[in-house]
Amino acid sequence: MNASPKARAQSLKGVGVLVTRPAQQAAELCELIEEQGGRALLFPVLEIVAAEESPALLDLVDRLDEFDIAIFISANAVDKALSLILARRPLPAHLQLAVVGNSTARQLQEFGIHADLIPAQGFNSEALLALPEMREVHGKNIVIFRGAGGRELLAQALRERGARVEYAEVYRRTKPQADVSALLEELRQNKVQVVTATSSEAVRNLLEMAGKEGAQRLRALPLVVLSARIAEDARALGFKSVTVAQLAGDEALAEAVVQAVRRRYT
């Protein structure tokens, strides 16, 4: 039985939740936390920067007609890729657009474009590879729009299935310069009860940015992440209590925060 709206509004009453998403992508998660009575504490540990418009990247954009499928790894990939592409040319009519999850599909819709291929569940590279259309790719040309230094699993699997794959790295992630004093004060006063992170890089950056004392205090708190892979990396970095959201996306992340609070504090 679903909780009543009133009960749901109190699910995170008095709970401080550290949100580490990039500042421009944190609003929805912060809103979901606050709707349930929590206090969202924003401390971005990643900054998304458009890649340099190199001759190689511009050449790939100009050659889009050669490709059968374009895969967008993230909402950031959609935003940076389409901003670049549509400033130079329209998308080819025959090009199938594939995304790894709902948030990426929603970002496509912001440009008035619908995804052709999207996993029904899972919302990661493995789920995308499981689609029937991604199994029959022998002889096809595929471009993957992603950030610099992403995972190799998707391209490797597609090449093994006979596809020709190229990368278009349209953004890079950087560690922002931040004043950590406010976060340390929140931690010292026990005003943070749960930490969230949406990538392994975010976990590493958070610990580095927080310094020795901050990292020690953060590792003692429940951490909520988006995948088993991130959870494994977080445990290797010293987090003891890690909850994995059932799905990718802010709603599932917020629900996992509620679950983590119930396990730890009730």
Rank of each mutant, 00 (worst) to 15 (best):
R106I: 02
G149S: 06
E136H: 04
G122T: 05
V143N: 10
N102L: 13
G149W: 02
I118Y: 12
A130R: 13
E136K: 05
R146V: 12
L131H: 00
T104C: 02
E133A: 14
E110G: 14
H138I: 03
A148C: 09
G149C: 05
T104E: 04
Q109V: 02
Q121D: 13
D116S: 06
V100C: 01
R146Q: 14
N102W: 11
L108E: 01
G147M: 05
N124Q: 13
V100S: 01
G122L: 03
P132R: 06
E133F: 06
L129P: 01
V137M: 07
V143A: 13
D116F: 07
E126A: 13
M134W: 12
N102F: 14
I113G: 04
H138T: 09
A115F: 11
V143K: 06
F111L: 10
Q107K: 08
A130C: 15
S103Q: 10
N102Y: 12
I144C: 09
L117I: 01
R106P: 00
F145M: 10
Q121V: 07
G122K: 04
G150E: 15
D116K: 01
S103M: 08
I113Q: 07
F111M: 11
G150V: 15
G147F: 02
L117A: 03
V143T: 05
A127V: 06
P132Q: 08
Q121N: 09
A130E: 15
F145L: 10
N141I: 09
N124V: 01
I144W: 12
E133H: 06
E110Q: 11
R135F: 13
G150W: 11
A127E: 15
L117D: 03
V137F: 06
A127D: 12
G122Y: 01
G150H: 12
G101Q: 09
N102K: 11
K140N: 14
A130F: 08
P132G: 08
F145S: 02
Q109K: 13
I144H: 07
